[in-house]
Structure formats: C-alpha cells, structure tokens
Amino acid sequence: MKITDAAVFPYPCGDTSVRRLALEAKTLGFDSLVAMDTPAGSFDGVEILSGIIVQDASIRDVIARVKRAKDSGSVVSVAARDNGFNRATIGLKGVHILRGIQTAEKTAFDHVTAKMAADNNVAIDLDLSVLISARGLARQRAIHRYRDVLIFERRFEFPVTLSSYARSYLDLRAVREITGLCSLISMDTSGVEKAFDAVGRVTTPRISAVRVVS
C-alpha cells in the first residue's frame, strides 16, 4: 500500500520547494505526493506524481484539457460544481479525481453521481485543510458534507482520496494525525488506509475481468 497525499502545491504556488515537501512528507510517513503543476520525479524515496486541476471551466474546456493531459501521465482533477457538471465530468475518460465537493452546492453530489463515480473509477477528494485550518461554520459544513459523501462511499464503494492542499510544509500533517482528523468524519483506520491508496487505484487502468480471445 502506498500512502499518498493527493494534492500539494510546491513553489511557486506555495513557499516550499517540491524537494523539501518530499523530505518533510517522508518524515511524516508518506510514500508519494501529487504535486500540482510540477513534473513527476522521485526525491528521497518519495514519489512525486504530477497533478493538474481544472477549475472554473465549462464542460467543453474540461474535455479539451483532459484530452491534452491524457498522455502526460498526470493525475487529472476537476473542481466540482453543480450536479449536471459533476455527472458529465465523472463520465469523462481521463478524469481521476473530483475535488472541492465541500464548496459545491448541496445537491452537487447525490446517489446517481456516486454510482457513476464507482462505475467510472473516479475518486472523490476530501480536502483536509478545511478540517485543519477552518473554524466554526465552515468546518462544521465540511464535516457534514464529508460524512454525507462517506455514506455514499459505503454504499457504492467509489474511491475516496485525502488531500492536505499544503502550500507549505507547515500545512502537512502526519499520517497518524490525519487518521485522527478522519475520525471526526467517522472514517475508521481501514477507510483511511484505503483512501491513502486510492490515487494509485484511480491512475492504474482497470483490467477487464473478461478477456476476449479471438
């Protein structure tokens, strides 16, 4: 099992270089990171996966950007919006993660979208930075929304990823701390382990159960 943080923002988006993030992530117990707009590589035994986030774009733009990123080997994420947009996005081949579900409108993620995510092997991302740095109503809303997503996850078994959205190494948290934070949204240890491993599962193409031999 590979323990992966599904979104970090190294320099110049943040104040920490990708090497330093890798160094700190290793001490905190991570095996790999998805670094946004950064070339893939490996530093100090920590694998860096290149990530792309498509946000504030129409579905046509999303299709174009996903097509462009198809052969780059990047982890492609799309920021969630309304329900129709999310369903259309999840149906696209090449989209790995749907992000920002806590900021999307209330009806943005329902049982139909959850079923589609499971069928298309698209992960739903849980942004931990809200649990860490937000206070009051913002955090309460995020907890409520994540609990709701996890109810669907138990029913439909779509992948769930965990992201720190770290723009600095100070925003990273240890694996044990993240497990504790996930207990706030009623996610048990096995669920957290599964979520840490989810990036690998969504980026690996599914092997068909039936192989046609001519």
Partner: peptide, 16 residues
C-alpha cells in the same frame, strides 16, 4: 493531540 494538529499560527506567525 487532534486539536494540536489544527493549530496553524500563533500571534500571526505560521507554525506547525
């Protein structure tokens, strides 16, 4: 310890 992981600043100085 869970609460300590949510401390991000002290007197506007960022820390972990």
């Amino acid at each position: 310890t869970l609460a300590l992981s949510t401390v991000t600043a002290c007197l506007d100085v960022r820390l972990a």
